[in-house]
Amino acid sequence: MVEILDEVRKEFVKDLIANGKRPSGRAFDEFRPATVEQNVIPNAEGSARVHLGKTQVLAGVKLGIGEPFADKPDEGMLSTNAELLQLAHPTFESGPPDARSVELARVVDRGIRSSSAVDLKALFIEEGKAWNFFLDLYILDHDGNLIDAAALAAMSAILCAKQPRLEDGKVVREGSLGLVKSGATCVATTFGKIGSTIVADPDLDEEKAMDARLTITTTPDRVCSIQKGCAGGFTRDEVASLIDLAFEKGKGLRALL
């Protein structure tokens, strides 16, 4: 249902942006303050909680034994799921993952997979047996840009994830364990287009007013995932300059890991 109030606010934000200001007073290329905390859920093998402005995301990692996928028989299995918890926003509903949460999970997953942030080969055990790497993204509080917050939480959880042992066919999660082998660190940076203006790290008000969205996930020197989301479009030159901005802003976020 189209919320009239949302429409009214949207117009307000669009006017504000057209006049060179963001509702939060930030510069157009400015990210909100972010914090990262690791190991917030000790029962999980790895976990992290991220605040990005008022957006809050919790990522949890669990490992278990499973059978490799037929098309990747010598690797472990990464499985990423996102839950837009009902407590995070008045409009989030219960039920199976909707398109929004599926896109969120897949975009975060793509960055991790492309950059080998989790070394899937190292999760292989023997023929027909490998580690399942379950990554769950729990959205706790939605104030815009869930992708960047979730990706940051995911990466942080990966970096502190403990690697369980296999002893006599049983999974052992206690005792001294090393960390899951990880590769590059990837960081997602999302930009929203409102009218002809592009803003970095759109908050919820800006998200509602934006036409198009571009998420660029980077390692220190490579682009590892791009997702253009929502309707609208970007010019070729805009994409090029946003890649530069992605590397720049990615540095700042990466420093929090």
Partner: peptide
């Protein structure tokens, strides 16, 4: 009318 919005923020 084009009101100049001095104060931003929802």
């Amino acid at each position: 009318g084009k009101e100049k919005f001095e104060r931003a923020g929802f």
